[in-house]
Structures are given as C-alpha cells and as structure tokens.
Design a protein around this nucleic acid. Sequence first.
DNA 1: TGCTCGATTACCT
DNA 2: GGTAATCGAGCAA
Length: 250
Amino acid sequence: MPRLRREFFDRPSTEVAPDLLGCVLWHDSPAGLVATRLVEVEAYRGGIDPASHAFRGLTARNAVMFGPPGHAYVYFSYGTHYCVNLVCEAPGRGEAVLIRAGAVVHGAGLARRRRSAGPTRTDTDISPAGGHAAVGAGRNGRLRDLDLARGPGRLCQALDIDRSLDGADVCAPGGPLGIGPATAFGLPEAGGAPVIRTGPRVGISQAAELPWRYWIADDGHVSMYRSSKPRQPRPKPVSGRDDQDGTMHG
DNA sequence: TGCTCGATTACCT
DNA sequence: GGTAATCGAGCAA
C-alpha cells in the first residue's frame, strides 16, 4: 500500500494540513482494517502557537511532537477519548496536524461495532459472550455512517487508535498505522476539484482567531464548529461586543 | 500534594 | 440547547 513519504511531512503544518485532505488514513489491527478519507484537519504550530500542546516545551506527554515528522502523536482528552495528530517539520519544532474528521471508506462494519461499543471501550473482544458487557453496550443504536469518524474522538474510536499508537511511524512500510493518497484505496483522485475551506480551530481558547482549520467544502463528514466554551462565566463590562464566534459552517 | 480545566462526546430536556 | 462524564498534564502552594 503506497504511503505518503516522510518529506511530505517535513514542512510547516499549515502547508501539510490542506494537503492531507482527501488522503486516506488507516489502522490495520488484529481485528481488521479500517480506513478513512480525511475531510477535516487543524494545524498546530508548536512553539509559536499558544494553542499547541508543544507551546510550553517538551514534556513526557508531547515528546513525539518534537521528534521526526511522519509520526503519530496520540493524546487522551477529557478523560473519555483520544485524538491523533501527525507530526510535521524537522525534529524539535513541535508542529503537528490534528486529524478531526474523515469518511470511512473501508471496514465500516468494524468501525461501527467499535463506535457502538461505547466511549473508549473498544478493541479486541466485542463478543457478547463476555460477561462484562455493561459498559455502554447497545448505545448508539442508530449510528449513521456519516457519524462514524465525524470528530477527532470518534475517528480514533472508529480506527481503534489509543496511546499504544503514540509515536507510530505512518511512513514506515508495514506499520499498523498508515496514510496514503486516495488512489491507494482505489478512490477517485482527490485533486479533482475539492473546494478547501479554512476557518478558526475548534474548541480552543488561545489563538482562536487563526484560520488554521481546513476542511472539504460541502462534505457531510465534517464535524460541527464549536468555539471554546469558557468555564467560569464572568461578569461582562458594559459594552457588548462578544460576537467573535467565527461561525463558518461549510 | 492538591486543584483546575481541556485540540470532546453523548445523553437528557 | 445544556451539561455530566472522566483522567491526567500542568500549575500553584
């Protein structure tokens, strides 16, 4: 299966991000292969980007971001789900592209079972024979194909990506996690004429105005835009101008 | 050592 | 449309 080469990722994340749209990300696990065509991504620019996990420097958690390009940085968020990034630029820069949403193009049945199994509990044994089926089993009764990988947490669940894949090399032949051009899966060339839109990133409070989110226009697999929700409502001054929710729906 | 809050999601009203 | 769930990194004391 042809993969994107490492030099593809050896560029600023703002250049890599739009080029990833239309590419296919897959995870070949013991349970089977699930692949998604990427329709929404966000660029994070490391040390110069206050919203980036790498902004405050190297830690054990984000170490992969400071490594060589073409590796996956996986982190656990909100205690409930994982998010996956692809590292860009030369080592030490801390740049990465967050994979936000995709369309499942292979292994939809397996992806659906994982998504239906409940949050974070996925993986190997989904057989009802096991005794501990209590965790969220049976929820998501009518899960739409559109929603299988619509959102960063959902995408990771559909592909069964967790911290065990942190640092995985997506460029290495034979690796369980990979990414290639759409043609690798016999899909029509993505370069045909997909309209790419840009806008503010989702759910961040720092540098929220930077238009570093990229998505394919008019694609139903793109996640909903949400601006950052402040935790503590604070009393406002008199003047009322708080209409800065960059509402840019596709 | 303890506390706050996040690159979110699913469920309830 | 609002919010509970859930855990760990990062910061304050």
